[in-house]
Amino acid sequence: MAVKLTLRNREFEVRPGMTLHSALEKLDILPESVLATRGGELILEDEILRDGDEVVLVAVISGGGA
């Protein structure tokens, strides 16, 4: 088992036991550019990711003119 993260149509896996912040760093994803949800709830960067967690990352940057 592992921790699964998705961002748009990309999928990633990390080891359980690390914080969300470390996971994002490892995957080279800027924490400022995403929000993270687990089971529909927002989670913060200090959250420890557990075995079997499925984290959905929501991209927050958009480039169109509002």
């Binding site: 400022e32 929000l35 949800t37 927002l42 929501v58 927050v60 940057i61 958009s62």
Partner: peptide
């Protein structure tokens, strides 16, 4: 507001 704050508002 940061873009991230507005995304969080819309989600919540």
């Amino acid at each position: 507001f940061y873009e991230r704050e507005m995304a969080a508002y819309s989600l919540l």
